[in-house]
Design a protein around this nucleic acid. Sequence first.
DNA 1: TCCAGAAAGCTAGCGGTGCTAGGAACGAGG
DNA 2: CCTCGTTCCTAGCACCGCTAGCTTTCTGGA
Lengths: 190, 190
Amino acid sequence: MTIQARRERERAEREKLIITVACELAEAEGWEAVTTRRLAERIEYSQPVLYSHFKGKGAIMAAVAVEGCAVLAEELREARTAAPDAGSALAAVGAAYTAFAERRPALYDVIFNLSVDLPFATPQAPAALHAAFGELVEGLRPHAGEEDLPLLAETFWAALHGLVTLTRGKRLPREHHDRRLELLLRRFVA
Amino acid sequence: MTIQARRERERAEREKLIITVACELAEAEGWEAVTTRRLAERIEYSQPVLYSHFKGKGAIMAAVAVEGCAVLAEELREARTAAPDAGSALAAVGAAYTAFAERRPALYDVIFNLSVDLPFATPQAPAALHAAFGELVEGLRPHAGEEDLPLLAETFWAALHGLVTLTRGKRLPREHHDRRLELLLRRFVA
DNA sequence: TCCAGAAAGCTAGCGGTGCTAGGAACGAGG
DNA sequence: CCTCGTTCCTAGCACCGCTAGCTTTCTGGA
């Protein structure tokens, strides 16, 4: 009974360890450096152990993505609630979003850029993802007017995503990122 | 003299063949299916021949991307010039942009999503890329007002890119793509 | 206390990847 | 005709994600 409990606890801890090590490795050297061999070495187990926890590398990345969603949602929430008034909340959320992408690029990529078959646009999507999207919705609510709010949020989200993705991929110069973000915000505030 | 000329011509033709076959293979089965072995098989030469033309797989993808830029630029130009008036050109260009991404996903990916160290935000960028961006600029010109036109175009481009990327990556449901595009356009027309 | 059986984790290997070293075959010029 | 350069291929390297099958370790009952 207690022995089995200990085993399950240890197993859960190891699973958590895999996720955090994968995340650290990705943030330190990029996802192309995250191989099952290196991951196994870091957690000090052999490769096949990874497959007793996850179906494959993609599942590990998906697990990291789910964790990342929670971090993002929390940062967006803090930014929005710390804003002095509802009207300026959108700017705060937008800035927090791009800051997250800048500061945690590997985390951002695994959530939004790499293909990790997570359910997204469905109720089965991770709760944290819905929470993050909800922060965008709340930020936009004061400026929605006659507009369909979810659709407005999706479009604004897409614009933010385009900005950070093109900037990170060196398609846009980092130089005037702030001005572009400000310009975008001006187009979405009432 | 003429013999050498023939050889150079044949070599150029083979290089062109590599690019077109890589493009076809990518469009048919996705970039993950484009391996140097399969590519070599399709052009009926051995693998190392590829490396006598290109530095590596990345260089082949970059070459495909450059070709793709020309196609995109031409499609955007046609859409803009076919628009009944300058005011509606932006909608036409935006629709052409997303249609291109939808119709030629592999081409779109290699230009804008995958990392293929092409120079982008510099004068060294492919001329066709500047041309494509120029079409966006022209579409936006009537609606720029006091706004900085290049910055406006970059931001609009980012928004379009976000829409098509999230939709293609199944992060946004394809369902209301048109409504999102229309909403975006409404935010950028004067 | 001892032993059978299960659970856990390892070694080794498969088929694939991008890429390259070294040699064979072919054509051109003396 | 022979030599030399070029062109191209065979074979192989180190790595990838993933898995079959064995060894070790531990557990629970006699």
